[in-house]
Design a protein around this nucleic acid. Sequence first.
RNA 1: GCGCCUGUAGCUCAGCUGGAUAGAGCAACGGACUUCUAAUCCGUAGGUCGCAGGUUCGAAUCCUGCCAGGCGCGCCA
Length: 556
Amino acid sequence: MKQKLKQIIEQALQNACKNGKLPSAAFPDIVMEVPKTASHGDYASNVAMVSASIQKMAPRKIAEAIVSHIVDADHVIDRVEIAGPGFINFHICPDAWAEFLKPIHAQGCRYGAVNIGQGRKIQIEFVSSNPTGPLHVGHGRGAAVGDSVANILAFCGYDVQKEYYINDSGRQIQTLGRSVFLRCRELMGESVFFPEDCYQGDYIRDIARQILDQKGASLMDQSDEKAIMVCARYAAALILDDMKRDLESFGVTFDCWFSEQSLYDSGKVADVIEMYRNRGIVYEKDGALWFNTSAYGDEKDRVVVRQNGQTTYFASDIAYHYHKIERGFEQVIDVWGADHHGYIPRVAAAIEAGGYDRDRFHVILVQLVSLLRGGVPVAMSTRAGEFVTLKDVLHEVGKDAARFIFLTRSSDNTLDFDLEVAAQKTNDNPVYYVQYVHARICSIIRKHGEMPAADVSGAGTDASTVLLNTPDDIALIKLLMKYPEIIRLSAELMEPHRITFFLMELASAFHGYYNRQRVLTDDVLLTRARLYLMTAVRQVIANGLSLLGVTAPESM
RNA sequence: GCGCCUGUAGCUCAGCUGGAUAGAGCAACGGACUUCUAAUCCGUAGGUCGCAGGUUCGAAUCCUGCCAGGCGCGCCA
């Protein structure tokens, strides 16, 4: 409809110009928007105001010139008004709307897919939690956002790869090994001192028990260093398996699990450092090797190889991100907790120093989650091993509620996750409000199937859709027409919460409709038309929910 | 001190690639189930869009400064 009106205005501008009513043939891009207030029409354009400086005319005069040259061949326009400072307001014929249900039925589960990716390869890396402990709520938010963004981008024509980066190298893994090792000795009856910097959680004991069962006490016969190494590998693998299971029950899967250690094993870290060294980007100072990140906008240079010869985490991250782009991704997206934001400039610097445009690297920062129960904060301390895991949350509130709630805020905002509210099946909980729409429509259709003469095969093809012309019908249709635009925005901005809010808005419109209008009536044509509308609503709800990774139940 | 995020109704937040009278949910109050699922709906009430300037036909939205809160500023990961 917007497109149609744009063309009509464009034509009117040209005609007006030809007839000498407008001095200049230079026209701006025509913007057509939906006014907030119904009395301002169904669509409004500000062309006249924007053209004022070009045409050297008063906006209202320009608007008059445009309006008087409008040709409405298809008779979609009921009336046109000039309002306020020079808005041109279009009121659409009530009968013209139902037309726009056709693409929804024609495209089905593809409705809303705007092809902005055009097959371009894009990678999104998320969660990437260290395999040293279970996933907690914060990871859940990252997982929900990352997975949903991946869904949206794939839906919009990108060739998306989802990746999990496994930090299976470095000090934290060492610490993990030491923690398990000490618990093993403890289980064998030794009294050991368990340092504070080791992982305190009970899961360490469980792992120790498993490893002793599996490998036997002879594990401890080798040198401590070797035993710790074995413990570290074993524990990391176990924790990783656990994470995979948790993520799967959260509806999240990855195309690639990328090991940090593999970057060292294949010599990629050394190679990349060598390359940068040859190009003078990396230099030695104070016995350490530094990366010249400040030349690329970082606040200071960063160490890559420490005085003691060990590489820093940044070293492998340089190699990792460099190779991501080498793997052929046009864009590389990282989903990070907001506490890592200070790390962005140096990774961007590394990419730019590698000869790539820094815009190819994008970080979605996700703010903290505070866990509450009935409004009271739940104490969480990784150090003390007290935390509510993602698994616990899933068990308590379920996948759909968890995913939906994680996406009810912009990532830029911190999120209070209240376990009590999330578990409630009341209107405090927006998931069910949206899912209920789907269930209700399915129920209507089931009921209709039990009715005599339950044939809807002609729906949408006969004149019956003209009956969809009440304000309630039109309001719903207009919302459905908005959906592709919502999808485009959420893809471009990588903001899944836009879909969440849209679905709540659509749900609200539907429930209102349901309470005021009847779908199944004695009037066969009307019933057919309304079923046609209802199935379109159901389709859009299902499409949106699927992008969020939430199921659309047929009954509740 | 520097950087990032936030500041909109009593609470939690949308809106912020500029548009007309700023929205939703919750909480409060009052209503609606013999009819397709009341996990629903309708109505009432509620606002100096943190503050001050600037840009322009027009600012919650863009720019600058300030104030407040959160997070981060390692040869940790």
